Computed example of a mutant assay.
Amino acid sequence: MSVADFMALCLGHPEHGYYTTRDPLGAAGDFTTAPEISQMFGEMIGLWLRSAWEAMGAPADLRVIELGPGRGTLMQDARRAMGPLAQAETWLVETSPRLRAEQARRLPGACWADRLDEVPEGPALIVANEFLDALPVRQFIATPEGWRERQVGLKGERLAWGLSGVLPGFDPAPPGAWAESSPAARATAAGIARRIAAHGGAALLIDYGYRAADRPAGWTLQALRRHAPADPLEAPGEADLTWLVDFDALAADLAPLACRVTSQGRFLAQMGIGHRAAALAEARPDQAGTIADALERLTAPAAMGTLFKVLAALPPGAPTPAGFDEDA
């Protein structure tokens, strides 16, 4: 089977899937996302949403939509900084029953959908943090005979990597050239673009990924289990599987929207996370060290600051949004 089919089964199988059978977050899980590191992350997102809403003229009928909201922590923290926008109808695109229960506890009054296209039409502000990287990805490599797709199969009684036959329709490339493509991520981007182009709004997409200048040397699929790297084939359904998002390709998939991309560290700094950290440390001096550590983890180039990228997508001609200076 393709890597995409393997990922889909491992992560979404109704009985044995990683996301359908557990809460993967926090110390007891397998990984920690930015909203779980500090309330400051969600608060900066809330400030951005409020700024984008005000730039639209503060429409009363706008919906706030989050894709893959985890435990609901990001939106819970964001609401503190959203001002009047916190009263807007909130929609959470989530398929995990366990995570929906967590979200309901933190976000009373929220609405749920399995897919973005199930959310009622109208202007919307859309947020997705570490969502696209977990959508199934296909992987390809150029061989002397032509392009082939990476696959997962059996070698004896164990899972093993393999390659498909030669694929038609690919442009020639030197042996060893590689490519990744996620049909689900591309469809999500296309859905976001259609909605905002038709009804107005904006999207803020945050994930770990790369741009053309820092493209990795090879395929980016990785597994994480108990906060440590793992073999993706070792324990299907027991580890988180992700890949690195190509943000230049993502921007192209969001056409005709206008996109701006920057690093997470730069975005958070421009949104004022340093000032927020100082205010929190002054209010809670006994937690000053913890707050400083969280700020470092979220913004430092050696931590999440550079590896994670932030993309804003808006209707063509919209002004530069908060958090994205003219050089972003």
Rank of each mutant, 00 (worst) to 15 (best):
M1Q: 08
A4F: 03
A8I: 03
G12K: 11
H13M: 08
Y18A: 02
Y19P: 10
T20C: 00
T21P: 11
T21L: 09
T32H: 05
A34W: 06
S38Y: 11
E43H: 09
E43V: 06
M44D: 04
L49W: 06
S51M: 02
S51G: 15
A52S: 15
M56N: 05
A58T: 14
A60T: 12
L67S: 05
T73A: 07
L74R: 07
A78Y: 10
M82V: 05
M82G: 02
M82C: 11
G83R: 00
P84R: 08
A86G: 04
E94Y: 05
T95F: 01
S96A: 10
P97T: 11
L99C: 07
A104Y: 11
G109K: 03
A110Q: 10
P120Q: 06
P123M: 03
P123I: 00
I126Y: 03
A128T: 08
L132Y: 12
P136C: 02
Q139K: 09
F140W: 14
E145Y: 03
G146L: 10
R150I: 14
Q151M: 15
Q151I: 15
K155S: 14
G156M: 04
R158P: 02
W161E: 01
F170T: 02
A173F: 00
S182W: 03
S182T: 05
A184G: 08
T188Q: 15
A193Q: 06
A198P: 06
A203C: 01
Y208C: 01
G209S: 08
D214W: 09
R215Y: 09
G218P: 10
W219M: 09
W219D: 01
R225E: 12
H227D: 08
D231T: 13
P232A: 11
L241I: 09
A252S: 01
D253C: 09
A255V: 00
L257R: 08
L257H: 10
C259I: 11
R260S: 14
G272S: 04
A278F: 02
A278C: 05
L280S: 02
A283Q: 15
R284W: 14
A292H: 04
A292G: 01
A292R: 13
L295W: 13
E296Y: 15
T299K: 04
P301M: 02
F308H: 06
L311S: 04
P315A: 13
P319T: 08
E326V: 14
E326T: 15
A328N: 06
